[in-house]
Design a protein around this nucleic acid. Structure first.
Lengths: 228, 228
DNA sequence: AATTGCCCTTAACAATTTCATAATTGGTGC
DNA sequence: GCACCAATTATGAAATTGTTAAGGGCAATT
């Protein structure tokens, strides 16, 4: 339940502020990166694909609003959280900032604690069904990593076969949602391949067996769903 | 694409503020309800199951923080957005508010436009995150979710069979409207299939039984309708 | 090249659940 | 009391899923 994998990028041209914020967010368990101007912010954002970007508005090279606008046009940053942190407290600036697609607009000066609280509040909202970065799913004590192709339950690594893995990954990608048998066939087996009805059941069974968890629920006549 | 189905509950003891905010949120397409004290806020929240609750902190009967704490302990309000709107601008109040589980903390006075922008920002993030609440029916204490294929009554999850679910969903999709038996047969069973008349009755019975609610009214000689 | 082992699929059967029908009961209006 | 309609109950058939076992195919190993 730690924030260890959560990456935050802070862009501000005042080194003092960068340092203070970085320190406080670090203490909370976040991994923090910094940038000193708009261009650097864009570059680093693309490098590290952060979960949250805190942008000062008045920065050299490119101001924060421009950075935000650019980021929001790119699909990979569509779901990235953005907070404006700025000394500009007038109404039109705030309106513009929020309407640009930011998730919060905070006025300087602000106490580090308060900022951390706001950051936590934002993450609290979306962390529910979060996929951390590159397709790694983490749901409580269950980790599903399609890159390393491994599944962990309470730090115990469990080997799954390919189909089993794909099936589990599909279900776990949208916890709670019911996948129709046809959907599963299309996603995991592909539209062309034709397999019998029992094939899915057998794989479900093996997954349940190997994981030792009761995390897959049957919805009779409909399909299956992943539920913690 | 409109905010028409989004319900917002505002709780404040100052009628002027209620009116101004209500007007502005209405203009944006939201459906707005109001409450004048903490108890009323709780009551109305349970009645209308809003998507967002804007809470003044200093209110009669129960203050906003208490209301928020109570709501957050109940699963049905786990995903409900909460904004504190208050004249208390000191740091400890803000910290306490955000840590209670609120999603935003806004100081009075605030321009209506800015508030609307913040509300929009919150909704923008939510609908993006938790997959279009497409087809999820919320009627007071009853939630019918065809994606998760579950029905909740007062936080109790109830498992329905396929036909039962489809039938309930059909009726609940237009509360108050009477569905003729033929309509029901066509929608749920399809035009081709031919089943006896009593089949519908039996399923209605099971739904009533499982829900434990008297929400389906019989219209003799005509059909059935959903009413809460 | 043969063997081994694992993965995937299928088949067969058991267990469970759902669904439709029939029969019975209860209420309401004429 | 009769006719009608819906609610209820019971029941068996049908559909769906769980479970187990077994065989084919592919890849790695010997």
């Amino acid at each position: 339940m730690e924030n260890w994998e959560k990456k935050i990028l802070i862009a501000d041209d005042e080194p003092d502020i960068l340092e203070i914020i970085q320190y406080n967010l670090n203490a909370e368990g976040y991994t923090v990166y910094t940038a000193r101007d708009g261009d650097e912010a864009l570059t680093k954002a693309r490098q590290i694909q952060p979960d949250l970007i805190i942008l000062d508005i008045m920065m050299p090279k490119r101001n924060g609003v421009e950075v935000c606008e650019i980021l929001r046009t790119q699909p990979r940053f569509k779901d990235t959280l953005i907070i404006f942190l700025t000394a500009l407290s007038d109404e039109s600036s705030q309106l513009k900032g929020l309407d640009t697609g930011a998730d919060d607009y905070v006025n300087k000066p602000i106490s580090p604690k308060l900022l951390v609280s706001r950051v936590n509040a934002l993450f609290r909202r979306i962390t529910k069904t979060q996929e951390t970065g590159h397709g790694v799913l983490k749901l409580n004590n269950l980790v599903i990593d399609p890159i390393q192709f491994l599944v962990r339950v309470d730090d115990k690594e469990i080997a799954l076969a390919k189909k089993e893995f794909e099936l589990l990954y599909l279900l776990a990608s949208k916890p709670g949602r019911v996948f129709l048998r046809n959907e599963i066939l299309n996603e995991v087996w592909g539209n062309e391949v034709i397999v019998g009805d029992r094939t899915i059941d057998v794989h479900i069974r093996k997954i349940r067996q190997k994981l030792g968890l009761d995390c897959i629920t049957t919805v009779k006549g409909v399909g299956y769903k992943f539920d913690l």
